[in-house]
Amino acid sequence: MFEARITQGSVLKKLVEALKELVTEGNFDVSNTGLSLQAMDSSHVCLVSLTLREDGFDHFRCDRNMAMGIHFGNLSKILKCAGNEDTITLKAEDNADQLTLMFEAPSQDRISDFDLKLMSIESEHLGIPDQDYSAEVKLPSSEYQRIVRDLTSIGDTVLISATKEGIKFSTSGDVGTANITLRHNTTPEKPEEQTFIDLKEPVALTFALRYLNNFSKATPLAPQVKLSLTKDLPIVVEYQVGELGSVRFYLAPKIDD
């Protein structure tokens, strides 16, 4: 038996909205430590890794490890039926072919349940090594969203370079060129408005803007986003989801011929 209850149901709604265009389907792996998902997009260019800790839920029970095959478009349809203030409970029997979602309004006067048909999905897990990155940048998630949105209107790829001067995003296209540089800035009083640049060594990598732009659909989940860069490795774009866990997007760089 699997059962997970979260008072702040809107978090689940936002998570699925952030993922559903990138990955159409994937397995929710549940165990007594929590719920996780690792899924690649259809072209295997990027990977989503979601980790929700057992103690981040208001109630969590998982008697047997299970892989629940989810079609995210269908899960999104069901979660759209939940109110933003609703408590959401996920439930499944062992080896079930459906996941039950129960929505409770805060006033307790409206309770609904939906069953989502589960799929059987063959998924290949990739081992992601713990890594020291050359540059780690924490910035407001709204700032990240603005940068990738603005640059997407100019070009297809972005060169991200981190130096002691700051982190620079450069692109070019038919219109012309664009450069946006952010500097380390801890002046704003609110920590979520600050920009932290932790540079071990200068690094520069090129990425497809379409994917970086897609990752910013996770903006409503967290006030800050962390970008991690190392030469010849995928960039990590990470959103901390409060005390519940995190969603990480990995994007393979462009490689010179």
Partner: peptide, 14 residues
Amino acid sequence: KANQGRMDTFFTAL
């Protein structure tokens, strides 16, 4: 022109 790398090239299957 740069080619798009794939995730499988960077991380190995478990």
